[in-house]
Design a binder for these strands. Structure first.
Lengths: 152, 152
DNA sequence: TTGCGTGCAAAGGTTTTGCATGGCA
DNA sequence: TGCCATGCAAAACCTTTGCACGCAA
């Protein structure tokens, strides 16, 4: 049965992801960054374990606009249940969108359009505040929580 | 300068896409389907012209959940401005979501979260009515317009 | 000791690119 | 005729898979 053994590679990779829950990674990012930190890990292992974690719901898996698979650790699966995510097309950061209106939208789509929206798969795309204003782009891995100023 | 010549391949491909504005295609779909109709076209040409059309806004380009690039002809760019799209994760069909609530959401996100939502890039993911009910999955290329029963 | 996990290398699939040829203007 | 467009093949990527060896239990 899969996922039975608790190996060094799994421990280190999970720790790596947990320590960077605000960031998202491609497989290459994980391999490269971990190896830069002196941790030895093979590419196949990263692919395989990331896939396992995604199945378990411990990481979110999605396609970037450029078509590269991205992964991000899900800090609290329960906390993520009720909300959606938004990706900035410029800086690439992923934001949590905690907002009642999203729930209302999901309900409405289900009841009046017949669509059952999947918050785990759906990613809203646009420009985040920093990239819109500064035009510089937020640094990669900046804090990515977004609370609604009005409706939380 | 690119896109200067009006060639047979471009004419046929554009016609092919226009005639099937309700469907979405991978590059392979286009190559295969067109060749099945007896139209000769090379794979590189399809890649290159699709890319050009996407830049011009004549086709929408996006990643399927499985990570394959999909293209769909945009019938009326202006008509698409005000609405979003939803993809069924089971049958893969793309639906127009014509609904005031989406506009309200975009406005709210901009004003209260600082996000400028991009309707052209954003795809809502979930289950469409047919796939939810029948469990069979709608046939590929079925009609994909969805009007709101309440709020249009 | 057993058998899952790992890592290498090979294979598979998709997309891009270089280059000679073809065809539009 | 000049130059962009096309199509083939090769290359570049990303991801999956097969297999022998390593290591957790």
């Amino acid at each position: 049965m899969r996922g039975e053994y608790n190996t060094r590679q799994k421990r280190e990779m999970l720790k790596f992801l947990k320590d960077r829950s605000m960031q998202h990674f491609s497989v290459d990012d994980v391999v490269f960054d971990m190896q830069n930190q002196g941790e030895k890990i093979g590419r196949s292992t990263v692919y395989r374990y990331l896939e396992q974690l995604a199945e378990q719901g411990a990481v979110r898996k999605y396609q970037s606009v450029q078509g590269v698979t991205q992964y991000q650790h899900v800090e609290d699966a329960a906390a993520c249940d009720g909300h959606f995510h938004m990706m900035c097309s410029k800086c690439g950061n992923l934001f949590h969108v905690d907002c009642r209106l999203m729930g209302a939208l999901a309900k409405h789509l289900t009841e009046d359009h017949g669509f059952v929206l999947d918050p785990r798969e759906t990613i809203l795309v646009g420009l985040c505040e920093k990239c819109r204003d500064g035009g510089e782009g937020a640094e990669h891995g900046a804090d990515t929580a977004s609370e609604c100023h009005h409706c939380v």
